[in-house]
């Protein structure tokens, strides 16, 4: 069967993620026992950081889609909102889950309720769960779209807040290792695997969003066809 662009991106992204996993196990250099409590668990970094990056892309799409619907009433933007919320849910859960696994090994606790970055990221994920479950409980319509687009708008304010949190607060979660003024503290091989993982997750998330938008478009078209067959306008 002819493969669509979205499906192709999904496939390549998935292969990339699986490859990243193998590289993380077989090729990534070990970290010093002095720097980490659990050097083995550190390897989850190659999943955790790229999935967080993908989650930010998804939440960004959610924001753009929400704004586009609220101010332009654009059907395309509503589909982007849906795609962003579903992708944000999946990648948010991946990030939180991988973070908890790492945290349990490294900190002795999977979660820290006083850590601002962790909690704001957790909130974004909860927001995504709320949007996906809530939207599925309602009939499609301008009321549903307005309500959930408004939540998507407000929730997005947390994204820059989460990013900035580690620069402002001295908290348990490690600070940024890339994108810093001193060039970061990452080994070259680690950086390469991280880059590969990030690219893979980017492909995966764009593939998912494109496929999700296609699904929404199909659902809307099916609804219109069913109304036509029912004899309605």
């Amino acid at each position: 069967m002819k493969m669509k662009v979205g499906e192709a991106l999904l496939l390549f992204g998935f292969i990339g993620i699986a490859t990243t996993m193998l590289l993380a196990f077989l090729w990534a250099p070990s970290v010093s026992i002095n720097a980490f409590e659990s050097p083995a668990a550190q390897r989850i970094f190659y999943w955790h950081v790229p999935s967080a990056w993908a989650a930010f892309i998804a939440f960004g799409a959610l924001f753009v889609g929400s704004v586009g619907w609220m101010f332009k009433r654009s059907e395309l933007m509503w589909r982007i909102h849906i795609a962003g919320s579903e992708a944000g849910l999946a990648t948010g859960l991946m990030t939180v889950w991988s973070g908890c696994v790492w945290g349990a090994a490294e900190w002795g606790t999977p979660w820290d309720w006083s850590d601002v970055r962790l909690n704001t990221f957790g909130l974004l994920t909860l927001l995504a769960i709320y949007l996906v479950l809530g939207r599925n409980s309602q009939p499609d319509g301008v009321e549903t779209r307005d309500t959930f687009a408004a939540f998507g708008l407000y929730g997005f304010i947390l994204v820059p807040f989460t990013y900035v949190a580690t620069r402002i607060w001295s908290i348990r979660h490690p600070g940024p290792v890339i994108g810093t003024d001193d060039g970061g503290s990452l080994n070259a091989d680690m950086g390469l695997i991280l880059l590969f993982g990030t690219l893979s997750f980017t492909l995966l998330i764009f593939g998912h969003m494109l496929t999700s938008m296609r699904i929404t478009s199909f659902e809307q078209r099916i609804e219109a066809l069913q109304i036509q067959l029912d004899g309605g306008k």
Partner: peptide, 9 residues
């Protein structure tokens, strides 16, 4: 404004 506000989480 939702059709079923009681169903929202």
């Amino acid at each position: 404004r939702l059709a079923r506000p009681q169903a929202v989480f």
